[in-house]
Design a protein around this nucleic acid. Structure first.
Lengths: 154, 154
DNA sequence: TGTTATTCGTTGCGTAAGCAACTCATCTAA
DNA sequence: TTAGATGAGTTGCTTACGCAACGAATAACA
């Protein structure tokens, strides 16, 4: 058994499981605040939606890469969200292999029902953390993301 | 569409999806290095195992809480690992509702086959990040974990 | 131009996860 | 001591995920 003082040095736990658990807890807490009936979507759809809020008109494949998920999983999520009239799939006329994803008005307006809960959760999560430390943390995470993603990010 | 400069301010993406993706990428990269045949376990078993390396003799319920997973999921993982002779379940004589989980020699020795790959991955992930920044990042993540976990951690 | 190789999205299949209901052991309180 | 409450672990059910195979459209090359 490893002593508590050594835990913070433990490379696997300190990064892998910390990011894992924080990610899991954040999603959990956001969804505790969200009215599931009202938004009609499930937690696992949040990733796709969040990406589309920042940029739509992308391909399913782009979403799969960005979200580090299987393209089949993304396809089913897209199908679900299309049935809810949250987005539409448009065949690309330039390259008919592609389908471009566009948010509907309903899909865009979901931001107003979800972002406040996300913001509240982040506020709760970062309570009593110095803003400059949080900024560094996010910069480090971004850098780790880039390092692991072969600098494909941004 | 939100401009790139605004992304870093976006609370949901910056924390929720950064932790999500970093956690996902770290696990992915570790497993690219691991010889799956040799270790006999799957990525999703790593969490339980990692916790047990730090402290075994715990109950299944403890693992479920610590890993933020359903107790049924933990039960099946434990069952899998027991079949592989990586751990054993011992009925607690004090309280017969409990089963205590103990690692076998094989289970303990798996550390040697997994930790180096985890360490290498963390090293790759944190390349060109100032050690003091990384330290702050981990401290912040620990604090976020505590904040969201109702201070049940540590 | 025609043939081969990629690439995108879909589908089928097997596995893993969470929820809920259940069993069994233990604890509590009359 | 006995009835109800509590808590740990298991099982059944449903759904989500990843992998692999496939079809369609395009790209690359002779």
């Amino acid at each position: 058994m490893i002593h508590k003082e050594e835990k913070i040095q433990y490379p696997f736990k300190s990064l892998v499981f910390l990011t894992n658990r924080v990610a899991r807890l954040l999603t959990q807490r956001i969804w505790q605040r969200v009215d599931a009936e009202e938004v009609e979507i499930l937690p696992q759809h949040m990733g796709v939606l969040s990406d589309l809020w920042q940029q739509d008109g992308v391909r399913q494949q782009d979403l799969a890469v960005a979200l580090i998920k299987d393209k089949a999983t993304i396809a089913r999520t897209i199908q679900f969200l299309e049935q809810k009239n949250i987005l539409v799939r448009v065949a690309d006329q330039q390259d008919k292999r592609n389908k471009r994803i566009y948010l509907t008005h309903k899909g865009k307006s979901l931001q107003e029902k979800l972002i406040p809960h996300a913001a509240d959760t982040v506020e709760e999560a970062t309570a009593e953390i110095a803003p400059e430390d949080l900024k560094i943390c996010i910069q480090v995470l971004n850098r780790i993301y880039k390092n692991l993603n072969g600098f494909k990010c941004n």
